[in-house]
């Protein structure tokens, strides 16, 4: 065991060489990241100031594309839709997950729960495209959803859920909720298993019911897990693409058009590369603006 002082001196002395070595180790990652993420990202910002159809010459238009983003009601609506999806992709799975996890906490180690772990994860494992295909079929006018409604005497509610203006976006949201609820439940359950059982026992001795127990013990201890669930699901909502592409292509009308899909259409079908890039920049900023506060609130407090 070397003397502490010698050790520290040795480390100091090695620093310059290790410095270069460190970056050498990081180099492959840095190169790939710079070439295929940072460079395109910079270009996205650059393109957003141009009017370009992707083939001919481009024209500098300054902030015009951004101006259009906020004045063109159709484009702006995509952002509004993304926020509406947060309700389904994020709030529903997290709240439902909290409720379910709190209820099954007591049986978290039973065999049923072990099976549930596997089953609830299925939607996370399959491609979102597959989820979209399954659900477009379930929600179609002759699908299972309508059949169930008719069976319980609610036949007059049946409709083509993905084909009507009022229901298409919520229907897309439900697909997202289905994908994410299992993940949230298991995340929160894992968090709950880390809570000291003594806390609950003490609460019981004080005569607390399950509701008070939930609000005074479970919820505060889960800050970090809730933060993670919210972050993951909010990103999934704002950046949604696969499900919408398969289930509705943004229709009917533009009622389910989300930024991700609009970027794709603008860039590759309408060939308004500049506008697509401006929307892309807005999306990147939007995601950061939503996620950073959540991280700050839930991470700092718990440490």
């Amino acid at each position: 065991m070397p003397e502490p002082i010698t050790g520290r001196r040795a480390r100091r002395a090695r620093r310059p060489r290790a410095a270069w070595l460190g970056w050498l180790f990081a180099a492959p990652a840095v190169v790939m990241y710079a070439a295929f993420v940072l460079r395109p990202l910079t270009l996205t910002v650059q393109y957003s100031f141009y009017d370009w159809n992707g083939i001919g010459a481009s024209k500098w238009v300054g902030l015009d594309n951004y101006r259009r983003l906020f004045t063109d009601s159709e484009l702006f609506a995509t952002i509004v839709h993304a926020f509406e999806l947060i309700v389904f992709f994020s709030f529903v799975p997290v709240l439902l997950g909290l409720f379910v996890a709190a209820t099954i906490r007591g049986i978290a180690t039973s065999r049923l729960a072990t099976v549930a772990r596997t089953v609830l994860f299925l939607p996370q494992v399959i491609p979102l495209v597959a989820a979209g295909i399954m659900w477009s079929w379930l929600l179609s006018s002759t699908g299972l959803a309508n059949e169930l409604l008719s069976a319980v005497g609610l036949g007059r509610l049946t409709r083509a859920w993905l084909g009507e203006f009022g229901t298409a976006l919520p229907a897309v949201g439900i697909i997202g909720a289905w994908v994410l609820v299992g993940l949230c439940t298991l995340l929160l359950l894992a968090g709950m298993s880390k809570i000291d059982p003594a806390l609950y026992e003490a609460a019981r001795l004080d005569g607390a019911g399950p509701v008070r127990e939930f609000f005074s013990i479970t919820l505060p201890s889960l800050r970090q897990e809730i933060g993670v669930s919210v972050t993951v699901t909010v990103i999934a909502a704002l950046a949604s693409f696969d499900i919408v592409y398969i289930a509705t292509q943004g229709g009917p009308g533009n009622s389910t058009m989300v930024p991700g899909l609009e970027i794709y259409y603008l860039a590759f079908s309408e060939r308004e590369i500049g506008m697509a890039s401006a929307l892309a920049v807005a999306l990147v900023i939007l995601v950061l603006a939503c996620v950073l506060p959540v991280q700050r609130l839930t991470r700092d407090g718990s440490r």
Partner: peptide, 19 residues
């Protein structure tokens, strides 16, 4: 690198295509 964690793929897909 950490900032890249939240990047939606749609954010860079257009230039990526040309690249």
């Amino acid at each position: 690198f950490v900032l890249g964690l939240t990047l939606p793929f749609e954010g860079i897909i257009t230039p990526l295509y040309y690249q």
